[in-house]
Each structure stands twice: as C-alpha cells, then as structure tokens.
Nucleic acid binder design. Structure first.
Lengths: 237, 237
DNA sequence: GTATAAAGGATTGCATGCAATTTCGCCACA
DNA sequence: TGTGGCGAAATTGCATGCAATCCTTTATAC
C-alpha cells in the first residue's frame, strides 16, 4: 500500500491542465495543439500527450482530425444551440434528484460553494467563470448519479468552451445572484421554483451569448500554457 | 483522394469489434483483456489496442485498473439501477424530440428497423439483442441531437452489458411487440402514449433483470473473439 | 501443515524511432 | 501580380524496446 498513491497519473494531470486552460480561455477555440510542443512543455513524451488529447476529444473539447493534428474545438452555432437545449433538460433531472436528496449537509456544501463564488467575484474573470461552471457540477455530484454527473460535467465544459467563442467579453456568464436563488428554492424543497430558476438561468446565458459571433485567433501560441504545464511538471496538482 | 478513404481507422474498427463482442456476450463481464493477446489477434501492436481499450473505458464498457490491465466492466447492481433510471429519463427526451421531427421518412426508417428485428427474431439470441439495442439508438439518431445520441448510445451499450450480467438467459430483453407499439404511438403523434410505453418498456426490462444475480466466468478465454478479429484484419468492416 | 518470503515470469507504463502524410515555402511561368 | 507545382520540413501513425509493476510459484521457517 503506497503512502499517498498519487491518486491520478500523468495523463489525468495533463488532461486536467489542458481542460482548465481551455475553460479559462487561455487556449482559444481553433488553436492547434501539436503533440511535440505540448510534450516538451509538459515534460513528457508524445505518447501521454496523445492520450490526453484523445480523452479531451471524447469530451468534445478538442477536435482530432486524422493526420492533421488536434485543435481546440470550435463548435458551430448550431451545435452550441443543441448543447444548451440539452443542458437545460439534463439539469432538470439534476434538480429533481437533488431535491430528493436534500439535507443540511448538502445545503452546506452548496452555500460553501456560493461563498467561494462571492469571494472571487472581483478576482480574475477566468476564475469566476470556472467557479460558475463548478456550481453546476457540484449540483450534479449531489444528485448522486455518477453517470449523470459525467454528462453534466461534459456538457458544462463544452458550454464553457462555446461561451469563450460566442459570448461577449463582459457578460457575467452565470449570475451569482441566480445561483443563490436556486439554492434557496432547493432549500425550501420547492422543485418547481428551482426548475424554473435553473431554466431561466441557463436560457439567459444562452440567449445572451448565442447570437453574437466572435472571430477567434485561430493559430498557435502556447506560451500562455506555461503556468499549467509547470504544475504538471512539478507534480503540484 | 483515396478510393474508399476507409472512413474509419483501425482504432475505430477495433473498438467497434470489441464493443460488438461485449454486447453480443462473447466477452463476458470480468474477462481480462491483455494487450498482447488482443494485439496478436487483431494483427496490430499494443499501441492501437491500448487506444481502443481506453476508448471503451471512457464509455464504461471496460474497466482499466492501473498496472493491472483491462477487463470487461462488471457493473454493480447499484450502478445498474442508476443506469436504468437515467435511461428512462434520457429516452423521455428522445421521445419528445422525435415527435417534433416526425415525418414519413422517419416513420419509414423505424418500420424498416422493426422489420429487421422481426426477421431476426428466430436467429441467434445475440443478434436480436443487438438489434433491440439499435432500435433505441435509431430513435436517438432521429432525435437530431448529436450529443443526445452519444449519451443514448453509451447508456444503451452499458445497459446491454449489464443485462449480460444480470438478466436471465431467455428473457427476450426488449420485446419487439413493445417496439411496435412505440412506433405506432409516435406515428399518431401521441407523445404521452409514446412516453408511457417507452417507460414501461424500459422498466420492464430492468425489473425482469436487476434482481437476479448471475455469476460470470471471470477469466480469460479469447478464442471466441476470432471472428471479430478476422473482420478487422481483413478490413471487412 | 500453514504461513511468510523471495525469485521468476508475465503485463503494463512510457519513450523513442521510422515511415507516411500533410503543410509550407520557393520558384517558375503565365 | 497571381497561380500552379515541386521539394523540404514539420507532424502524425504506428511499432517496438526497456524499465517498472504486479502476479505466481517455489522454497523456507515455524
């Protein structure tokens, strides 16, 4: 039995790092992700990079064209709308389940997360975006279904990616206020209200975002990745 | 431009072959899947086998324990119940969308599939099981949402795997008759009826299956894989 | 006879090398 | 100036090799 067991392995760390970089808009949609450059940065061989990219491709965050390398995915408006529509419906399922599981402990976790969001409100934009996404993921975790959790994670990440393509820079993509209202409805056990709030919350995000187009810098610039890579190289999860 | 372009690559073919083998109960839950043996059988190196196994692991069909190799997944009863519960709710979404898209063309596709199921009714059991799963997947395809399709595929496959662990040998896992009724309700545009039928259909499958336990031969016996491997080696999709 | 320990074999983790494909720069030519 | 093609460089696809890990068997002690 190992002391710490290191829990995750390098492939996991690398995919997590890349995922974070994408969600925090350091890697923008369309950017190429060549295996050797990444390998060099992360201090591993192409083998592990390949695995990570394939994993992210399975999640829909990167596109993997045969013989042409990987690039951060660039969902079309149509795909984006599909994604957001499905998201509202899937998160409906989350609400139902969380209501069934509601307990003081769960309420506590939700409020703790909200507190983090409030605290980070004036911090950097990428971080508050990440926290907003994680609110939805926390809810899904509290729903108690591992499969549902995976789907919410994936959809959440892809929506985050989508927003980095289409959303205006300064829309607060996920209002903290709205999160608070949802928690209150859940606390009261008012499923209908929670659902309506969630739906309103999500369609608000989508509508604000999905009708403006924004052209993205399509090419290669990996230097911004450095802080993410360093963490992996040093094993500082 | 290549003549046929071979469309998919070897990794895809191998994962498809393995997936089919699992769904047709040639590879039973718990069976070990060593990289070398598989590579030898499929006529490729461990690299491609590894990729395929990782892909299937992401779908939940195989378990991938670190340093201990891959094995066909063996979902617990609890996971199984979670899966089936989610399935009914996800397929609810499918029904709504298919109803919205309903057209003679779609109806035709559904009936064509039903005809195949009827035709294969007295053929081998694995084939009718596969067709039954594919009915649900066809529905999801007709729903028009790529993401939803992926989730239904994945859940369908995993349910198929689950049934190979828990279901009695001779339960007709997905009644053809029930599929027919669902198509009829869809044709009439009766969303409520279609939903109820689908729900009934799925809970029937689950209830019949999920309370009996069946012990599976846990070890290694890959010879039965031969026909699947041959197809890949020959490029006969 | 049971239990513990060590050696040997089998299997995975990862890096590297070579062939195949694509991309890009360069030059000729209209 | 713009366009087509050719060759070199960059990049991916895949196989293989070596080290690390795990499993099994055998040997030894109690």
């Amino acid at each position: 039995m190992k002391a710490a067991d290191k829990a995750k392995h390098r492939t996991d760390m690398i995919s997590s790092a890349l995922r974070s970089a994408i969600l925090e808009r350091v890697l923008m949609p369309g950017m190429k992700l060549p295996e050797d450059s990444l390998g060099e940065r992360f201090g591993v061989s192409r083998t592990l990079i390949r695995q990570s990219l394939e994993r992210l491709a399975a999640e829909g965050l990167v596109e993997l064209r045969r013989n042409k390398g990987a690039a951060v995915a660039k969902p079309s408006l149509e795909e984006a709308r599909d994604l957001f529509e499905l998201r509202t419906q899937i998160e409906d399922l989350v609400i139902s389940r969380v209501i069934k599981n509601m307990s003081p402990k769960i309420l506590g976790e939700l409020e703790a997360h909200l507190a983090k969001e409030v605290e980070a409100e004036n911090a950097s934009e990428p971080i508050s975006i990440r926290l907003a996404t994680e609110f939805h993921i926390l809810l899904a975790r509290l729903a108690g279904s591992p499969v549902l959790l995976r789907y919410v994670e994936e959809i959440g990440y892809r929506c985050g990616l989508t927003l980095s393509l289409y959303a205006r820079p300064h829309s607060t993509d996920c209002g903290i206020q709205e999160h608070r209202q949802i928690i209150e409805a859940l606390a009261k056990g008012d499923e209908d209200a929670a659902r309506k709030l969630m739906r309103h919350h999500l369609t608000a995000v989508a509508d604000r975002a999905l009708f403006t187009t924004k052209e993205s810098g399509p090419l290669l610039y990996l230097d911004a990745l450095e802080p993410y890579a360093k963490k992996v190289r040093d094993g500082t999860s």
